[in-house]
Amino acid sequence: MRIVVDLNRCQGYAQCVFLAPEVFQLSGAEALTYEPNPDDARRLQVQRAAAACPVQAILIDRLNGAERSVTS
C-alpha cells in the first residue's frame, strides 16, 4: 500500500507511532519518519493510524489495483 504524510500539517503527536510502530517512527522528540509503501499486511494498522491522527495528516492510497500499473 502507499501512504504519504503531509509533514507540514503533522504536529508530531505520535499517535500513528503508537498504532503502527513498524511504519511510523519518531526521530528525536518530534520529527516523524515513515515507510511510504508499507506491506499490504499492515493496512489495518495504517488505517488505524490515519484515523487517529489529530490533524488528519496521513493520506492513504484510495485506489485498489487497476490504474496502479502505469504504462507508457
Binding site: 505520535a14 510502530p21 519518531l26 522528540a29
Partner: peptide, 18 residues
C-alpha cells in the same frame, strides 16, 4: 510529560500500547 512518556510510548516504548 517527556519523563512520563518514556514509560508509555514512543520514542522509547513504541510497542507498549499496541
Amino acid at each position: 510529560r517527556r519523563r512520563m512518556t518514556r514509560h508509555f510510548g514512543p520514542p522509547e516504548r513504541p510497542h507498549m500500547i499496541a
